[in-house]
Simulated assay, not measured.
Amino acid sequence: MHRVIGETDLSETALDEDGARAVFRDMIRARHFDERALALQRRGWMSGWPPYKGQEGSQVGAAHAMADDDWLFPTYRSNAMQLARDVPASDILLFRRGHAEYHSDHDVPNFPQAIPIASQIPHAAGAGMAMNYEATRDDTEVTDAAVCYLGDGATSEGDFHVGMNFAGVFDAPVVFLCENNNWAISLPRERQTASESIAVKAEAYGFEGVQVDGNDPVAVYETVADALDSARDGDPVLVESLTYRQGAHTTSDDPDRYRPEDEDLPEWRTADPVERFETYLREQGVVDDEFVAECREDAKAELDDAVDTAEAVGEPDVDELFDYVYAERTPRIDDQRAWLHEWLEDHDPQEQEF
């Protein structure tokens, strides 16, 4: 397993000082966003929120390893990756308030978040196959790749096996980034699979699986960068990022009902990744009090602006429920739309009991 923090000088890693500061800045942004989003949800400002506190090192490290043109296949919990990939914070907030996912005019190569568990995995494999087909057609080398984010619970879904198998058979340029936070909602990893690890599952599909300390953003950066190089050469990789979800699965979840206080996990896995990385960078002479304070002030200002932007957007039009299901509305969708408009004429949704 690839680990760096506390064992290696930054000068011996693939990140230079500017790169390390950029990763740290994005981890601060991600932490502030998660805490603010949780507070906003608690006061009814938006719908449910899936916290990712404790997983910032894994997500930001992986995002920084990606090239600008690489495609990210995210899920509902990979919002730190999306922030680090320059998706506007206001877009993520507006999505949680019922708007189309990418509300602004940005051109970040990200697929929509997958809410169903594991449905994004075959999509990523298919996109990788398409990249291969285009390169063959144009007689060029494969230069782009896809990173498919998934949780450990997704490995129990059929889509996981289908996507991994297609990627292996067709040499798709895909890195499968599995964040193993030890809990698939209320199910611990040892009841999720009898395999020694999640990484070892890749062997069944004919490619490499590796583990990395997910709370070490430098190690994640290096591991995912190496995996992307391999994927572009036709060898997909499954990266198991060992991290820990500090909060609930979602705001509708109570982890105290199933998660014991004395979990038998090593300290490096449960330690706060933001604090851990800050300590490391201070010891390396890369950041100081002034820089850390600036990062936090900038993150707060960014979130204040994002909330203001989101609040300035009106309520989503009811037709958005139907306009984005398919490229063009079908007769059945039109019938459903007409029914809802007729129902709304006779009912006030604010007065309904659900």
Rank of each mutant, 00 (worst) to 15 (best):
T140G: 02
S78H: 05
E101L: 13
Y76D: 01
D105P: 14
M81W: 00
Y76V: 08
A67L: 14
A65C: 13
V87D: 04
W71D: 01
I92R: 06
R97T: 01
S119R: 15
R96L: 02
H99S: 04
G151D: 07
E141D: 14
M66A: 13
W71H: 06
R97I: 02
A100R: 11
Y76L: 08
Q82R: 07
N165T: 14
A135S: 15
V162H: 10
T140Q: 03
D152I: 09
D68N: 06
H123E: 11
T155Q: 04
P88Q: 09
Y102I: 00
A154G: 10
F73Q: 01
S90E: 01
H161N: 14
G151H: 07
N132H: 12
D69C: 09
P122W: 09
P116Y: 08
W71C: 11
D152L: 10
D107P: 14
E134D: 13
A67Y: 02
V108N: 13
F73E: 03
H103E: 03
G158A: 12
V87L: 04
L150H: 10
A124C: 12
I92T: 00
A84L: 01
G153Q: 07
A67F: 08
N79A: 05
N110M: 10
G126K: 06
V162W: 04
R85N: 02
L83C: 01
A65S: 15
L93C: 01
D138G: 01
D144A: 10
A118N: 15
T140L: 03
D105R: 15
G128E: 04
D69T: 15
H106N: 12
R85S: 04
E134G: 09
F160Q: 02
A124E: 07
N165E: 10
L83W: 01
P109K: 13
P74F: 02
I121Q: 07
S156W: 09
T136F: 12
M66T: 10
D144H: 05
P122F: 12
D144S: 09
N79G: 00
N165D: 12
E157Y: 11
V147Y: 11
P88G: 11
Y133I: 03
P116T: 14
N165Q: 13
G158I: 13
V87G: 05
Q82T: 09
Q120S: 11
M131A: 14
E134M: 13
R77V: 03
G153D: 08
A80M: 04
L93P: 00
H99E: 04
D70H: 07
A146M: 06
A100V: 11
H64T: 10
Q113D: 07
A145I: 04
